[in-house]
Simulated assay, not measured.
Amino acid sequence: MQDALIQVAGLSKTFSRRLGGLFSTRRQVTRAVDDISFTVKAGEMVGYLGPNGAGKSTTIKVLTGLLVPSGGEVRVNGLVPWQDRRRYVAGIGAVFGQRTTLWWDLPVRESLELLQHVYRVPPARFRENLSAFSGLLELGPFLNTPVKNLSLGQRMRADLAAALLHEPALLFLDEPTIGLDVVARERIREFIREVNQERGVTVLLTTHDLLDVERLCRRVMIIDHGSLLYDGALAGLQERFGGERRLVVDYSELPERPEVTGTTLLTQDGLRVTYGFRAQSAAEVIARVTAGAPVRDLSVLEPDLEGTIRRIYEGGLLQNGRT
């Protein structure tokens, strides 16, 4: 816990609403987050996943200091987020896909200059960061355009620059690529990767676009119905809960018996044979295949991450395997 930037222990958050008329004493209590614990080390980039209503947004609102939890302990960079908020927010950045921190009627440049004064960024440092981010995010063509006239992709790039101008240690991203085209999504992913790797910014990412997770995160946490179901390596998630991996082999000539130990022969079309396997490593399967007959080409197809996540939610695969 001592080297963690984010420390969460036994976090819970409940919401209560009155049922019936004005004088009714009946209340409905919803437990949005239910006793979750995790740590995030400085420099990590972690995907925080879950279906709508799982508790992701509530967790992020607690971590950014917008909500006070009902129970548990939270420390981010040594501070309690909902206490001493001025000092706390000076060390974090946040981007929420459907909301902007920029001034709607002002040009992007003037919004960023206002944020410079809000966060007391020294002028030389501001100019340096603005120049770097303008290059990485290609802000130049619309720096003098009012925010209200920007496309969604342009606004998202401007919001990313705004969130990082004051050089926070931690960046919260909530659906940063939602609604963007392929080119804009990839540009933003590249920028996020750059600030994580080159500037050491710790990133906690929530998204429904699983390609964001595959491209950016080595570690994922999965939450559902307020409970943390999985916390570990993305590769481990696929290995433990993914479907079959497939090996597609183009033989130069078919072996006498195309079956390979430890695999399932899925399809055969001329000299192309597809095998399914689960427990063995790809290297072991490839060694068996190439030992049996000459091979012209082969490729390993990994299970689809979206399919794996769907299997977890729909099949209750983690009921007895919570980590």
Rank of each mutant, 00 (worst) to 15 (best):
residue 239 E to C: 03
residue 223 I to R: 13
residue 224 D to K: 04
residue 248 V to G: 00
residue 288 R to D: 14
residue 239 E to N: 13
residue 248 V to W: 00
residue 279 A to N: 11
residue 245 R to Y: 10
residue 285 V to Y: 02
residue 257 R to N: 15
residue 254 L to E: 04
residue 278 R to P: 00
residue 232 G to M: 09
residue 270 G to V: 01
residue 232 G to K: 10
residue 236 G to Y: 11
residue 276 G to F: 07
residue 207 T to P: 03
residue 203 V to C: 12
residue 210 L to M: 07
residue 283 A to W: 01
residue 252 S to Y: 03
residue 275 Y to G: 09
residue 296 R to N: 06
residue 253 E to T: 07
residue 216 L to P: 12
residue 295 V to K: 02
residue 238 Q to K: 15
residue 266 L to S: 07
residue 212 D to S: 05
residue 243 G to E: 14
residue 294 P to C: 04
residue 274 T to H: 00
residue 237 L to H: 04
residue 271 L to H: 05
residue 240 R to Q: 15
residue 292 G to Q: 15
residue 223 I to A: 01
residue 232 G to D: 08
residue 232 G to V: 13
residue 289 V to Y: 08
residue 240 R to P: 05
residue 247 L to W: 09
residue 238 Q to M: 14
residue 238 Q to G: 15
residue 249 V to H: 02
residue 214 E to Y: 02
residue 294 P to W: 06
residue 221 M to C: 13
residue 253 E to P: 00
residue 278 R to V: 04
residue 268 Q to K: 15
residue 257 R to S: 15
residue 262 G to Y: 10
residue 266 L to V: 14
residue 237 L to M: 14
residue 240 R to K: 14
residue 290 T to C: 05
residue 229 L to F: 04
residue 275 Y to D: 03
residue 254 L to R: 10
residue 259 E to Q: 15
residue 205 L to D: 03
residue 276 G to Y: 07
residue 240 R to S: 14
residue 228 L to I: 12
residue 291 A to G: 10
